[in-house]
Nucleic acid binder design. Structure first.
Length: 573
RNA sequence: CGGGGCGUAGCGCAGCCUGGUUAGCGCGCCUGCCUUGGGAGCAGGAGGCCGCAGGUUCGAAUCCUGCCGCCCCGACCA
C-alpha cells in the first residue's frame, strides 16, 4: 500500500475523550474513529489489524475441529423467551419491534440461534460432536461503554458453540478449545493468563477466562505464587478458615454506647479492638429485596458470590436511605441480632467468637456476640473478596493480585440450553438425549486494544509481527530524488512479490514526519532509503520493538528481511 | 440510573467569573518560496449554527431554564 493513497489520518495531539493508552493510540494512529458512544468505525489500518487477529483465530479454531458459520444478528424474541433469557438478560439486550410489531433483538450472543439451528439439523449421535463458530459484530447495550475498543457497545467477537453426546466428550472439546485459545493469544504476541471465572449471564457451571495482563485491565486476578491456581476475583476463594483448636468460652452478651462511631475503623479504635474482632453488617438489594451480609470487619463483599448464592439476577449495595427503610436502623449501627430481613454470613464469620456488631440502635454496639447463641443466619458461604493477605486455596502459598483484560472466555454449558430449547438427539441405544454444550468467545476487537495496552512506548504502538497491519514500512526520504525513489520503489515491489505486507511512505513530507508516523502506527520493521543510500548504497533496517538498527546493501534487504519475518512468524508458540 | 466533569474551526485549547466592535491562539489544511535523516522556516489564505431550544437584556459564547451529546467513577461483560 502507498501511504500517499491511504486513509491514515494520524494526529499529533490526543483527542480529549481518550483516557487509556490503547484508545489514545488507536485514535492518534488513525485506526478508529468514534461515531457515537461505544460505536466505532475502523479505518484501513484498524481493519487490517483486526483481520490479522481474525485470521489467527480462524486458523486455530479450524485446527481445533471447529467449522465457521455466520448467524443472524437480528433475532426473534420468541427464541429468547423459550430459553428464558428474554426476561433474564436485562437492558443490555437491545430490543425493538419490526414493522409487523414482532419483538426482536440484536444478538449479544448466539446460544439460542445456534441451538435452534443444530436441533433442527442434527438428530443422531452420528452427527456429533459438532463445533461451530462465527466472527461477527455483536451488540450489547452496555451501561457504560468506555476505553475505546475495550468496552464498546458494538464490537467484533468470535463466538463458538460445541455440541457433544456425553459430558466426557464435552470435556475433551473444552480442553481442545482451551488449547486453541492458548495458541491464538500466544500467536497474537500477548502476555496472558487463563483463570477460573464466574459464568455470569451465559450460565453453565465451569469456565475459564483468558486475561491479558495489563494494569489498565478492568478485572482483578488472583494468582498463586507457587502452584497453577489462578482465578478472577469474582470467583476466587481463599484457603478455607480453620476453627481454632482450643475452645473459647462464650462471654455474656453486652451493649455499649459508641457515640458517633459508624465506620469499622472508628468503632475498633474506640473499643480498642481489631477489625478481625468485629463483624460488619452490609445490606444489599437482591432483586430489589434487602439482604444483610455479615462479614469480618476487614473484609469486603464480593457481590457476584452473593448473587450466585441467592440465585439472583441483580445485586446492588443499598444506600443509607434504603438501609433505614428496610431495617429502621441508621447505617453504622446495624447488627444481626433481631434483624427482620434475610441474613447471610461469610464463612469466616461462622468461626468467630465474642465479636462486636451494631446493636440496631443509634450510637450503640453489641459486644461478645456469638452466632448460634445470639442470632441465626439463613446461609453461611464464601461471600467475600480475596485479599493479598489470603492464602492459596489449593496449596496454601501466598497469592498475587494483578489486573487483567478479558479477551476470551470459555464455558462448559452442560445441558442448560439444550434442555431449555429442547435440543435432543438419539444415542446409539436409540435413547433421546440432550446435547452437552460448550461455548467459547474471543473479543477480537478487544484483543487489538489489549495488545496495544501491552505493547507501546512514548512514541506509539509496538505491534507484534503477527498482528501488525503491515510487517514492513519503507520510508522514501526523498521522493524528489530519482535514485532514492527508484531504490525505495524496488524494495516495495519486491516485498509485495514475496507476499510481505508492506507500506511505502511515498509522501512529499519531511523525514521527521515519516519517522514519527512510522513509530506511531507501530510497524515492526522500518526501512529507510535516504542519505546513506545515496552515499553508500545501503538501506537502514530498524526494529520498532527495540530500536535495533542495521544496514544492508539494497540487493540483500528483501531476501534477508523476508527470511527473518518468516522465521519469526513460524517461531511463535 | 446515581455521583463528578466537559461541549468554542479537523485536533488541542483560551475567552465566560465581571455581557459590549470583526470570537482568539497553537497544530493541521490550501497557495507560493525555501528546506529534506526525527513532526523545519517565511509569506499569503480558507475554515465557526460558540452543542440545541427557550428566556433575561438595548445587546448573550458569556447570565438563567430545559434538552441533547461526550468523558470519568459504580453496577454489566468478549
Amino acid at each position: 500500500m502507498r501511504y500517499s493513497q491511504l486513509l491514515l489520518p494520524t494526529l499529533k495531539e490526543t483527542p480529549a475523550e481518550a483516557e487509556v493508552v490503547s484508545h489514545k493510540l488507536l485514535l492518534r494512529a488513525g485506526f478508529i474513529r468514534k461515531i457515537t458512544s461505544g460505536v466505532y468505525s475502523y479505518l484501513p489500518l484498524g481493519l487490517a489489524t483486526l483481520r490479522k487477529v481474525e485470521k489467527i483465530v480462524r486458523e486455530e479454531m479450524n485446527n481445533g475441529g471447529a467449522q465457521e458459520v455466520l448467524l443472524p444478528m437480528v433475532q426473534p424474541a420468541d427464541l429468547w423467551q423459550e430459553s428464558g433469557r428474554w426476561d433474564k438478560y436485562g437492558p443490555e439486550l437491545l430490543r425493538f419491534k419490526d414493522r409487523h410489531g414482532r419483538e426482536s433483538c440484536l444478538g449479544p450472543t448466539h446460544e439460542e440461534v445456534i441451538t435452534t439451528l443444530v436441533r433442527r439439523e442434527v438428530h443422531s449421535y452420528r452427527g456429533l460432536p459438532l463445533n461451530l463458530y462465527q466472527i461477527q459484530t455483536k451488540f450489547r447495550d452496555e451501561i457504560r461503554p468506555r476505553f475505546g475498543l475495550m468496552r464498546g457497545r458494538e464490537f467484533i467477537m468470535k463466538d463458538g458453540y460445541s455440541f457433544d453426546a456425553t459430558e466426557e466428550d464435552a470435556g475433551k472439546t473444552y480442553e481442545t478449545m482451551h488449547y486453541a485459545y492458548h495458541r491464538v493469544f500466544s500467536r497474537c504476541g500477548l502476555k496472558f493468563r487463563a483463570v477460573e471465572a464466574d459464568t455470569g449471564t451465559i450460565g453453565g457451571n465451569f469456565s475459564h477466562e483468558f486475561m491479558v495482563l495489563a494494569d489498565t485491565g478492568e478485572d482483578t486476578l488472583v494468582i498463586c505464587k507457587k502452584c497453577t491456581y489462578a482465578a478472577n476475583m469474582e470467583k476466587a476463594t481463599a484457603m478455607a478458615p480453620v476453627a481454632p483448636v482450643e475452645e473459647v468460652a462464650l462471654l455474656p452478651l453486652a451493649k455499649k454506647e459508641t457515640p458517633g462511631k459508624r465506620k469499622v475503623g472508628a468503632v475498633t479504635e474506640f473499643l480498642g479492638i481489631t477489625a478481625q474482632e468485629l463483624v460488619k453488617t452490609m445490606v444489599y438489594l437482591v432483586d430489589g429485596q434487602p439482604v444483610a451480609v455479615l462479614l469480618r470487619g476487614d473484609h469486603e463483599v464480593q457481590p457476584v458470590k452473593l448473587k450466585n448464592l441467592l440465585g439472583a439476577v441483580e445485586v446492588e449495595m443499598a444506600d443509607d436511605k434504603q438501609v433505614f427503610d428496610a431495617t429502621g436502623v441508621p447505617t453504622g449501627y446495624l447488627g444481626p441480632i433481631g434483624l427482620k430481613i434475610r441474613v447471610v454470613a461469610d464463612r469466616e464469620v461462622a468461626l468467630m467468637k465474642n465479636f462486636v456488631v451494631g446493636a440496631n440502635e443509634k450510637n450503640f454496639h453489641s459486644l461478645n456476640v456469638n452466632l448460634g447463641r445470639d442470632f441465626e443466619v439463613e446461609d453461611v458461604a464464601d461471600l467475600r473478596m480475596v485479599t493479598e493477605d489470603d492464602r492459596c486455596p489449593v496449596c496454601g502459598a501466598e497469592l498475587n493480585l494483578t489486573r487483567g483484560i478479558e479477551v476470551g472466555h470459555i464455558f462448559k454449558l452442560g445441558k442448560t440450553y439444550s434442555q431449555a430449547l429442547n435440543g435432543v438427539f438419539l444415542d446409539n441405544q436409540g435413547q433421546e438425549q440432550h446435547y452437552v454444550m460448550g461455548c467459547y468467545g474471543i473479543g477480537v476487537s478487544r484483543t487489538v486494544a489489549a495488545s496495544i495496552e501491552q505493547n507501546h512506548d512514548k512514541d506509539g504502538i509496538i505491534f507484534p509481527l503477527p498482528i501488525a497491519p503491515f510487517q514492513v514500512v519503507v520510508l522514501n526520504l526523498s521522493p524528489n530524488d530519482e535514485v532514492i525513489t527508484a531504490a525505495a520503489e524496488k524494495l516495495y515491489l519486491e516485498f509485495k512479490q514475496q507476499g510481505v505486507d508492506v507500506l511505502i511512505d511515498d509522501r512529499d513530507e519531511r523525514p521527521g514526519s515519516k519517522f514519527k508516523d512510522a513509530d506511531l502506527i507501530g510497524i515492526p520493521y522500518r526501512l529507510t532509503v535516504g542519505k546513506s543510500f545515496a552515499k553508500e548504497g545501503v538501506v537502514e533496517i530498524r526494529k520498532r520493538v527495540d530500536g535495533e538498527t542495521s544496514s544492508l546493501p539494497l540487493a540483500e534487504v528483501v531476501p534477508d528481511l523476508t527470511a527473518r519475518i518468516r522465521t519469526e512468524l513460524a517461531a511463535v508458540v
